[in-house]
Design a protein around this nucleic acid. Structure first.
Length: 476
DNA sequence: AAAAAAG
């Protein structure tokens, strides 16, 4: 039997907003959780992102908030999120589903000015969505009274634990009324998290949806052996992007923030439409880049694990792991950015020497082997062909005939040739002139390291960008 | 070993 949103006991305003957003059937977690939340029960929700978890608390909260009004500096509900982007995303959910309500929703995150946040607090916020640091900052400045909070949501609890937020959470809980409703969400339930639920929750209902430790079948996963140096890795990444089939947009994950910056810049300099996202960037750029990527005006997002979990980015066709994630769980989260909602996706992981040891942990966790990919022959990997100038490899000919260093991987040989059909949107046609104009800016950004390998393509004799990448229509 | 989050 299938349930409809209209049968869950949500108020009319919410149900209408949900219908207006185009949804009729709740997801598993929504169908299970919403009735309990409406009954004001405490709840433990074990669910990953992508399961519709956010709406499972946003919708019933909207219904419950219809009774009563907020007073200045006394929020009625509080939602804690581990990252600023996730907090912003929950905020968007409140805007979308709360459009028939007149509620004040305040987003308290770091990296942006206090001014707007103060205004919202003074007006009286019905809903506070916050990252712990900024929320406590407001509290210590006396802008905030937490004694009126009826509902507390702790989202992504296991990640909060990873990030060392638990002391903050404990502190915040001690500031809240003991009589309150607490909704607790976590993708996993390790013992420490289990203990927390005993401390923070009262007689909770437990709701669990299928754990996706085994990665979705809709994701084609591949491993690729690459060289040790960052330059070799970047070259391999470019080759993979160029050769990728049906690439619409992609996320490239790096383990380190400085690599995120370097890789993004490198891709840009090679003419790709790429942008960076990591936690050391100013919030404005973070938001801007993410918005552009979501809107489809940015083709390649290079990101740290800040983007690995939770972010709702629909329909990413490719995920590239520039580094092997050292925590196997992160692999699952990263590649889970593609192949969502039944769509197919491709996840390619670059394996430098010394990174193989992490691969074992991953295959063990996901309980399957991952196939080895073939390195496409391309101008940026020096081969006998490279000197022959500007032939477009779009025809697929010559590829793989003489790939070097593949002998130890017979599996790679029988992998079908990947044809580069459509290139990611190119930002610009690299012309020597433009490249020269770009140079000073890049020197400013990274004065000490001029990577020769990353010199603009048009400066290099062998690093020629194939025509098919510049003109998707191809040529005669 | 790294990322994230307060400034």
């Amino acid at each position: 039997m299938t349930v409809e949103f209209s049968e869950l006991g949500l108020g009319d305003k919410v149900t209408e907003a949900v219908a207006a957003a185009g949804y009729t059937k709740p997801t598993d977690i929504q169908a299970q959780a919403i009735p309990h939340v409406l009954e004001k029960r405490d709840l433990i929700g074990i669910a990953q992102t992508g399961t519709g978890k956010t709406a499972s608390f946003v919708l019933p909260m909207l219904s419950l908030l219809e009774k009563g009004r907020a007073r200045a500096r006394m929020p009625r509900t509080l939602i804690l999120e581990p990252t600023r982007e996730l907090a912003a995303q929950v905020h968007e959910n409140f805007e979308k589903y709360g459009k028939n309500h007149r509620l004040t929703v305040a987003l308290l995150i770091g990296g942006v000015s206090f001014e707007d946040q103060n205004k919202k607090l003074d007006r009286g916020a019905d809903v506070l969505i916050a990252t712990p640091g900024r929320m406590l900052d407001h509290f210590e400045r006396g802008r905030l009274l937490l004694t009126g909070v009826d509902i507390l949501v702790i989202d992504e609890a296991d990640r909060m634990l990873d990030m060392g937020f638990i002391p903050d959470i404990e502190r915040i809980c001690s500031l809240l009324p003991a009589r309150r409703q607490t909704l607790f969400f976590s993708a996993t339930m390790p013992p420490e998290i289990q203990k927390l639920t005993q401390r923070f929750l009262r007689d909770p209902v437990k709701v669990e949806v299928a754990r996706q430790n085994s990665t979705a079948d809709t994701i084609e996963q591949l491993l690729l052996k690459v060289g040790r140096t960052p330059a070799e890795k970047r070259a391999a990444l470019r080759d993979q992007i160029r050769a990728a089939k049906d690439l619409k947009n992609a996320i490239v994950f790096c383990n380190r923030k400085r690599d995120v910056a370097t890789v993004a810049r490198s891709l840009e300099r090679h003419g790709f439409d790429a942008g960076a996202l990591h936690g050391d960037m100013d919030q404005k750029s973070r938001t801007e880049t993410l918005d552009r990527f979501r809107a489809g005006s940015l083709a390649i997002l290079v990101a740290s694990d800040v983007a690995a979990r939770g972010l709702d980015i629909p329909a990413v066709s490719h995920v590239f792991n520039f580094d092997v994630p050292t925590h196997a769980e992160d692999y699952v989260h990263r590649i889970g950015r593609t192949g969502r909602a039944g769509r197919s996706g491709t996840a390619i992981t670059l394996i430098g020497p010394g990174e193989t040891k992490y691969v074992d942990a991953i295959t063990k966790l996901i309980q399957r082997d991952i196939a080895w990919a073939d390195a496409p022959t391309s101008p940026s990997a020096p081969t006998p062909d490279a000197s022959q100038g500007d032939e477009a490899p779009a025809s697929g000919r010559k590829r793989g005939r003489r790939t070097r260093g593949k002998e130890e991987k017979p599996a790679a040989e029988k992998q079908q040739t990947k044809q580069a059909e459509q290139a990611p949107r190119q930002k610009r046609e690299p012309s020597p002139r433009q490249d020269r104009e770009q140079a000073p800016r890049q020197q400013r950004e990274q004065p000490r390291r001029a990577n020769n390998d990353d010199a603009p393509a048009s400066f290099k004799s062998e690093g020629h960008i194939p025509a098919f990448l510049l003109r998707p229509t191809g040529r005669a």
